[in-house]
Design a protein around this nucleic acid. Sequence first.
DNA 1: GCTTGCCATTACATCGATGTAATGTGAGTC
DNA 2: GACTCACATTACATCGATGTAATGGCAAGC
Lengths: 333, 333
Amino acid sequence: MRATVKDVARLAGVSPKTVSNVMNGIVPVSGPTRLRVEQAMAELDYVPNLSARGLRNGRSGVIALALPDLATPFSAEIAHCVVEVAHEQGWSVQIEETGSDPGREYDLMSRARSNLIDGLILNPVVLDESAVKVGVSLPPVVLLGEVSQKLADRVWVDSVAAARDMTLALARTGRRRIAVLGAPGGRGSAAAVLRTRGYQAALEQLGIDFDASLVIPCEKWSPDTAAKALSTYLDSHPLPEALFCFTDSMAIGALSVLWKRGIAVPGDIAVAGFDDIADGQYAVPSLTTVSFDKRKVASEALRLLTERMADRGGPQRVVALDYAVVERDSTSS
Amino acid sequence: MRATVKDVARLAGVSPKTVSNVMNGIVPVSGPTRLRVEQAMAELDYVPNLSARGLRNGRSGVIALALPDLATPFSAEIAHCVVEVAHEQGWSVQIEETGSDPGREYDLMSRARSNLIDGLILNPVVLDESAVKVGVSLPPVVLLGEVSQKLADRVWVDSVAAARDMTLALARTGRRRIAVLGAPGGRGSAAAVLRTRGYQAALEQLGIDFDASLVIPCEKWSPDTAAKALSTYLDSHPLPEALFCFTDSMAIGALSVLWKRGIAVPGDIAVAGFDDIADGQYAVPSLTTVSFDKRKVASEALRLLTERMADRGGPQRVVALDYAVVERDSTSS
DNA sequence: GCTTGCCATTACATCGATGTAATGTGAGTC
DNA sequence: GACTCACATTACATCGATGTAATGGCAAGC
């Protein structure tokens, strides 16, 4: 059986509350007493029971991070950063996946693991598509990414501007027939809509007519679906001069298809992605992409979250992060 | 303020314990009473406080998953599977990263988040290198992967056999000068040692003399370190006929280097990996690798863990998973 | 020497859910 | 109608840590 404050107190010859005082350091404890207590804690290998502490204090020191799919490199990198930053600040992170069951997003937001969790960082997929009942007692929530709803604090990158800049960058390499992969199909996520909008804005700016046949829909943003979508597309369409994939994962799928068909990148077609995942650097050829600081995403999200925990009533805040178009071998050699 | 059993009880006109009985379903509750309680719970949007329940029951319903680095595709895929399988069984998963600080492995094992966590699935990096003080009160632990220590239940793939089979497969394509990337440098992880051993076993079986100059050390198993290690190697050595990388991540880094140098894969050199991460399929060229069922890793680990929770004293068990050499374009076209 | 005041320490209650043991209620039997 | 028996329900204590209010001791001050 694990030692409790009582055991430590008995061994140190003090009261349980004194042990607690030593741990918390708010109430002063005299030198010799503190020493005796610390020795007793060490001797018994005392570890505070966080359930009890959580019950008493009303906070558990755990936050939840909800992502569509942890196996996605982008999600994984975000999760890595969140876990790392959170750990530095003394938080533990519980991971929830929402990908397989969209209802879980609402579930998580409205119930929030019932006090086992002090706050929630949510990278939504569905949430942006329908209204959420803004219950009275939502837990502190920070949303990551493009969300049309204005229901919580948010950290994001300006997808419209970033997609526009990437399209312009592709145009600067002399290509005009620029296709996009990942356009909204049926429902379409907010990010898909926004990135398409940025693409169109760039075309307008360039004086290029929008050509609907250059918009390749791809509902799910994974390499396999992207590969399939592009493959199907190429069977019945001429090769575009450039391909802007709405995520790096899709771009990696696309590169694979192009290579298998003997289409040279960037010789025959330029390819770009979005997100700057680590593998993009080692893609063949290395991938031009929209980059932003994922550690900053994590630290800003955590900052908003802790501030929200301190002040539940404050105004909603949005943090927009810088981004940069990083040109690598997939668009110019 | 969130509703408690007391509130529900008051509204339903029963005692708190009856509400508890309705929730748990062990003690029988009469039909009408149960209905009244359920309505009251719905009306108040009651959610049980898991801290309190955890304190009382001594279990929290949360397990921890400790990985070196969540951003690694392999770790991410494992995490994805564990979270998914755990969720199906009603567990929540807390993620811990051990990469930056090896001491955390011991810390986690010996302290185990102080009752906020019912068990631990640990993918160790350092643990296999030194003895662990087998404390009296370790929490239920399951280790993932190659570990020399016999200190806990374990799920693994036979690295020696798998590396041997991969080496044999490479030899079957007619290559004799087979190099390995990821060999143990200074300390060297257990997996590195075992995979090297499998490689040597294959050479012996093939009647090929072991050539130390074909062993390329690479301490950290990431694309960037692999790329650097291979690059340096190629500057001062002739090109091998095949390159067996001890992880897919390293292989992806290697492919990138080879492509940049204009070395054709598999024309000039065959490349293989280990782990079968999703991106390997979309590598250019697609990557030959050692594959195993990661979902099964997760489900077996969770099975061992829950069984261990039920019976702390039972004998230590090891589950060895099947693997398969999957040949793709990087070794033959 | 006795009080005043301060500060370390203590006893007790509390957070919310639930096991235990006791109570209450009803039907069923003679 | 009194009694047993079974079963639903209740009061109370408990898990471990900690805030609150009260207690204790010690030194300074007259």
